[in-house]
Simulated assay, not measured.
Amino acid sequence: MNQKITKILMIVATCLCVGYFSGIITKESITTWYPTLIKPSFNPPNWVFAPVWTTLYILMGVAAGVVWNKMESDRINVRKGLQFFTIQLGLNLLWSFLFFGLKNPLLALIELTLLWLMIYETFMVFKRVDKMAAILLIPYLAWVSFAGILNAAIFWLNR
């Protein structure tokens, strides 16, 4: 298999693994704690989250793989972008632990702000390396923006 495709597939698989572990953290709370919360009218049904996140993890992985494949032509920005990408991926997993594992919407909201900023920084560096890779992160940035509003509303309604 082509080395470029292998790099993309490796990062997509890594992102999907993060999603899998987020799902493990989330699973119990989705049926026990989460239904007890007061949620805003714009809260999507639970079935929406898995396909949206799966799609986002795939797009994120493709974006990072495309950037990784530019290592020879722009080593500094590729390394910086992949470092930011790795940090945001860790923060992505941490949010699930804070919100669903610790059942702490306020702490999750604070962390989500850091996640959003790190996604934005990743987007900005990816844009310097490959514009299409950056564009692939826009749905993720939009969804995390929505998740922030939703998280804030849940915190506010349940304080």
Rank of each mutant, 00 (worst) to 15 (best):
N46K: 12
Y34D: 09
I24T: 06
N46S: 14
A50V: 14
P40Q: 05
A50P: 14
V52Q: 00
Y20C: 06
S41F: 08
S29E: 14
P45G: 08
N43G: 04
F42Y: 13
T31D: 09
T54K: 01
V18N: 01
S29H: 04
S29Q: 12
I24D: 04
F21H: 02
G23D: 03
F21M: 07
T54D: 00
T54N: 05
G19V: 05
P35S: 07
I24K: 10
E28Q: 15
G19R: 04
A50G: 15
K27P: 06
T36D: 04
N46Q: 12
S29Y: 02
V18H: 00
I38H: 13
I38T: 15
N43I: 01
K39L: 04
P51E: 03
P44R: 07
N43H: 12
G19Q: 04
T26G: 05
V52E: 00
G19H: 03
T54S: 13
N43L: 02
P40W: 07
S41M: 05
P44Q: 07
E28P: 04
I38N: 15
V48Q: 13
V52D: 00
V18Y: 01
P45C: 05
G19K: 06
T26H: 06
N43D: 11
F42H: 03
V18I: 15
W33L: 06
P45N: 14
G23S: 02
W53H: 03
E28W: 12
S22E: 12
Y20H: 10
V52R: 00
N43V: 01
I38Q: 15
F49R: 03
I30N: 11
K39P: 08
T36W: 05
S22H: 02
F42E: 00
I30D: 06
K27V: 03
V18A: 11
S29P: 07
Y20N: 03
I38L: 12
P45V: 13
Y20G: 03
P40V: 08
K27Q: 12
E28Y: 14
A50E: 08
P35N: 12
W33I: 04
A50R: 09
I25L: 13
T55G: 15
I24H: 06
T32R: 11
N46M: 11
T54I: 11
T32E: 12
N46I: 14
G23H: 05
W47M: 10
F42G: 01
W53E: 01
N43T: 08
A50N: 13
S41N: 08
Y34H: 09
K27F: 08
A50M: 14
T26L: 04
W33F: 09
T55Q: 09
V48D: 08
A50L: 14
W53N: 02
I25K: 07
I25Q: 10
V52A: 05
E28N: 14
F42R: 00
L37V: 09
P51C: 08
T54Q: 01
I30K: 14
V52H: 00
W47N: 13
K39D: 07
P44W: 05
V52M: 00
V48I: 13
S41E: 11
F42D: 00
V52T: 07
L37P: 03
A50W: 06
Y20R: 06
Y20D: 02
P40I: 08
P51S: 11
P51V: 07
G19D: 02
P40T: 10
W53G: 01
W47T: 13
E28L: 09
K27I: 02
S41Y: 02
